[in-house]
Every structure is written in structure tokens, then in C-alpha cells.
Amino acid sequence: MNARVTDGDRGVSVRRATARDAKRLTHLVRTSSAYEGPYAPMIAGYRVGQDYIETHEVYVAVGRDGRVLGFYALILNPPELDLMFVADSAQGLGVGRLLMAHMKHEARAAGLGSVRIVSHPPAEGFYLSVGARRTGTVAARPPAVMWDRPELELTTG
């Protein structure tokens, strides 16, 4: 679905990310309030590089004004949702659900029956609400990740 997908009611469209989006995506990650407090070390210094965007299936949700509202990155082999962020100002507006619907379509089009998600602990409820099911727990890996994370699977059918 490389064509733009739109949530016409809100004027939000989803398009393939380009190298020119790298700085905006990095800013979105680094300013996410979901990663404050004990989660802050996980994104400290994190960068979404142009090479990452060119290598993976990265899509952005953009508002009518051109502002990036969120993005996701899908790794095809093995199938995994690598990154998923929605701007704090766009939380609760359906942007995450739009991105997940788009990701399921892209995964299905690529022949994937399911996608693994290793969730940020506070985001597990969101993934469950869009149809993912819990399959286990990924153990902490200090010093980069200091907490266990829920492992989920989302079928694309």
C-alpha cells in the first residue's frame, strides 16, 4: 500500500517515509512522554537514520498541515514491528489505530501471516486492543533495557 491512505475525517494520511523524514522521526522518539522516568535510558541518544528508513518498511502518519503525527517500522524477515510511535499531541486521536491497520495491510501484502511485537510495557494495552495476543515475555537486557517487555503476536488476516 505505497499509495497514501487517509483517515478522511481527521485528514491524516499514511505514506512511506523518506530519508528527509529522519530528523522528524528522531525528534518524535526522543520527545515521547511514554519514555520518561525509568524508561528514558532506552531512547537516550536514539536516532532514526536515513539508512534505517531506506532499509526497512517505515511509514509515517501525516496531518493536513504536513506535521508528522506518528510512524512505524516493519521488519519483514523475521516479521516484527520494530518501532511504533505516536506524537504526544496526537495521542487518543486514532493515529495509532490507523498506523496499525496500515501495518497489517503491508504485512499481509508481503505474505506475512503474523507480526511479532515486543512492546514497551505501558503500550501493551494498546496492542491488545488492536488484536494482538500475548505470547510471552522478553527478559531485560541491562544496561540498554532494564525491564522485562511483553511479547505479542498480531495476525494479519
Rank of each mutant, 00 (worst) to 15 (best):
D82A: 13
P78T: 06
G157H: 13
A109C: 11
F71S: 08
M42I: 14
V68S: 12
L81E: 00
Y52K: 13
V14Y: 04
L154P: 03
K23F: 13
E36D: 14
A144W: 11
R108A: 15
V60Q: 07
D7Q: 10
L74A: 07
G94T: 03
W147K: 10
A34N: 11
V5K: 09
G70L: 05
W147P: 09
F71W: 09
R133F: 09
L98P: 01
V5Q: 04
L74T: 01
T55E: 13
G111D: 09
T155M: 10
P142K: 14
V138E: 10
R108Y: 11
G45I: 01
V130M: 06
H102P: 04
D65F: 08
L152W: 00
H120G: 08
V145S: 14
R47Y: 15
I75G: 13
G94M: 04
Y59T: 08
G70F: 01
G70Q: 04
V29P: 07
G131L: 02
D82S: 09
G49I: 00
R116L: 15
H27K: 14
L128I: 07
E151L: 02
P143F: 01
A44F: 14
L112A: 07
E54C: 14
R30V: 07
A87R: 05
R97A: 05
E80T: 11
H102G: 00
V12I: 14
W147M: 14
H102F: 09
G37T: 00
S129I: 05
G125C: 02
S33F: 06
Y35G: 00
G63L: 06
G63C: 06
R116V: 11
A17C: 10
A73W: 03
M100N: 04
R133L: 07
Y72N: 08
P79T: 04
F126E: 05
R97Q: 06
R24H: 13
G45L: 09
L69A: 13
P41E: 09
V130D: 01
V29Q: 05
R4P: 14
A22G: 12
G66M: 10
V62N: 11
R20I: 12
A109S: 13
V58W: 03
D21S: 03
R67F: 06
A22N: 12
K23R: 15
G63R: 10
Y127H: 09
G136I: 01
A132G: 07
G70M: 04
R134W: 08
S32F: 09
L76T: 10
T137S: 02
T156N: 04
G63H: 08
A3W: 08
T137C: 04
Y39K: 04
